[in-house]
Nucleic acid binder design. Structure first.
Lengths: 332, 332
DNA sequence: ACTGATTGTGCAAGCGGTTGCACGACATGG
DNA sequence: CCATGTCGTGCAACCGCTTGCACAATCAGT
């Protein structure tokens, strides 16, 4: 049916192995022969069958990106999408394909299959999948975790942004701007990255600790915030775990008649395009998701190429982008 | 190195072809033999090499999803992400993998390679890739366009939501609520889906036509809206091309001292989680992206299974979700 | 009991490439 | 001028699985 390497060889008057070598540049070939082969390929519109090539060469030419998504939200979140974009870019530059797979429903099965059935040469995993059981089977295989795993933190191979340091930036900024009583709003407290952000918050909040976890929705953030803000000595500064929490908080402030940034200061995590279009625009802790994806992919490809490269941990730092939601003149 | 089908066959005391048949259920096999084979597979922790399997069987077991993204935004947009989630779900249910690839930089090359190198059994394409040249090569191959192509609209195979009807809903809703002068804000007018939305707007706006295209950013929407709103007889109803436009418009209204929904009514396209958390919450035209992805994937798999299934066009309808941004009592 | 259909399994030829080994041709050095 | 290298290409095995064909064994029908 399709045109094979044999057809090309026949037309070019050489052996198929020569054609293979021309394609892969794996040996010294006369310019004359090369020309004949190229001409034949052109004429027949030859495209090597990547399946056959993979089988013979032992590498699939693809990497797998596992997502842990029970619902569409995780797929849709900016963090994942933007990282994925960067990952795909790195992969394409190296002639690799990206297979995405949802690992949520199938506890590890998907991941192991991708690996054991030779479908991918390497894997990018979400932190939740890092468990001793899985690591035992996957340990020898090229993988990188995108995020900090809760367990096996110092053994696993991962790339993450520094959530703890990000939260520190946020708290310091609020204090500098003259806010006195700082709370942390949003996020499921059990989640790894929330825990680390909370830790960064605690370290710098000067002994105070007011952590207000939610179920992750804007709605609950609003409810929780409203309750807190109705108390007499409510906080005047908030670090929000994400944009949803910030939106809920904004709504709560409106309904309580509190003004931002005069009465309340707000810093939110994540660089969300719309965070600049709230009223007022939100000061944010910027997570460079593109860089994150890029670094993760680069590390993975390094490990695919050279299996001796051991596990390493890369921590990228976050930066603060000040906007109007904390624009209070200090110590008024 | 890895355990092969031969190893299993040897241990089970049968021929490798029997093992193959057991795995694929392609023939009648004694229960006894089956049991032996399963036991051997278990004992050796056998995983069939999908590469070899694909080569022999002629199908890769993967579908490709092409994204047309110059920047990360397209990847990050809800539309794409949520559809992708649904597509992956359908694929996983059928034992297929999903390969994503950015087709933006490489005009068609990526797409053709995916197909011609037998890397995928089918493709989901963005509307922008539908060109006669590409269709000539891809026409015989199972594909579905996610969105309405501008050219070859009636020949190509696609699934889309009804943007025209969605815009009609929006305009009718505004008129019913007593808004009189309706404008369309946002979107690059050249883009296919924007064009169709504008058409739906025009049909129902009762002869008036005020279309305000932008470069797609919230910033420009804000600038454009501010200018329009400063005129004496400015519009009192807006259909926004997306949430970014709506956010820009909200900001413009604030700065002009116009109140929503009393002075201005707003309907925005797309079901964005935060659209409920603006001030006031936005009335939206809900595009069911999950359904869109699902239908697209299902159609693709039907075509993969049965190559005689011709090109078809599926149009899903949009629904309106009324919220406070249009909550004006009619004819006050 | 004999023939023909059915069932269960083995054999071996692919699927379309890659790659170690071999070998002839030509260049180089003593 | 012969021994020794290097270069360019062909040969054939192999990657691990699928599948058409063959064949022995079992079963049903008359």
């Amino acid at each position: 049916m399709a045109v094979t390497i044999q057809d090309v060889a026949r037309l070019a008057g050489v052996n198929s192995s020569t054609v293979s070598r021309v394609i892969n540049g794996k040996a010294t070939i006369t310019d004359e022969t090369k020309a004949k082969v190229y001409a034949a390929m052109q004429e027949l519109d030859y495209h090597p069958n990547s399946l056959a090539r993979s089988l013979a060469s032992g590498s699939s030419g693809a990497i797998g990106v596992i997502v842990d998504a029970r619902d569409a939200e995780a797929f849709a979140n900016e963090f994942f999408s933007r990282s994925l974009f960067a990952i795909e870019k790195e992969a394409q530059a190296r002639g690799y394909h990206v297979i995405i797979a949802n690992g949520a429903q199938s506890r590890g099965e998907t991941i192991e299959n991708l690996m054991k059935e030779h479908k991918v040469d390497g894997l990018i995993l979400p932190p939740t999948t890092v468990r001793p059981a899985l690591m035992k089977t996957i340990g020898q295989f090229p993988y990188v975790v995108l995020g900090t795993p809760d367990t096996m933190r110092s053994e696993a191979c991962w790339v993450d942004n520094n959530n703890e340091q990000g939260a520190e930036l946020a708290v310091k900024h609020l204090l500098e701007r003259g806010y006195l009583k700082i709370a942390y709003l949003g996020g499921r407290e059990k989640r790894g990255f929330t825990k680390r952000r909370v830790r960064g918050y605690e370290k710098n909040a000067g002994g105070q600790r007011m952590v207000l976890p939610t179920d992750g929705t804007a709605e609950e953030a609003c409810t929780v915030a409203r309750e807190i803000l109705s108390a007499a000595d409510h906080p005047d500064g908030f670090v929000c775990n994400d944009n949803l929490a910030a939106f809920g908080l904004l709504k709560a402030c409106r309904s309580c008649g509190l003004r931002i940034p005069d009465d309340i200061g707000i810093v939110a995590f994540d660089n969300y395009p719309l965070a600049e279009y709230t009223d007022p625009p939100l000061t944010i802790v910027d997570i460079d998701t593109a860089m994150l994806g890029e670094q993760t992919a680069q590390l993975l490809f390094r490990r695919i190429k050279d299996s001796r490269i051991g596990n390493q941990q890369i921590m990228l730092s976050a930066t603060l982008v000040a906007r109007a939601s904390t624009e209070r003149v200090a110590n008024v």
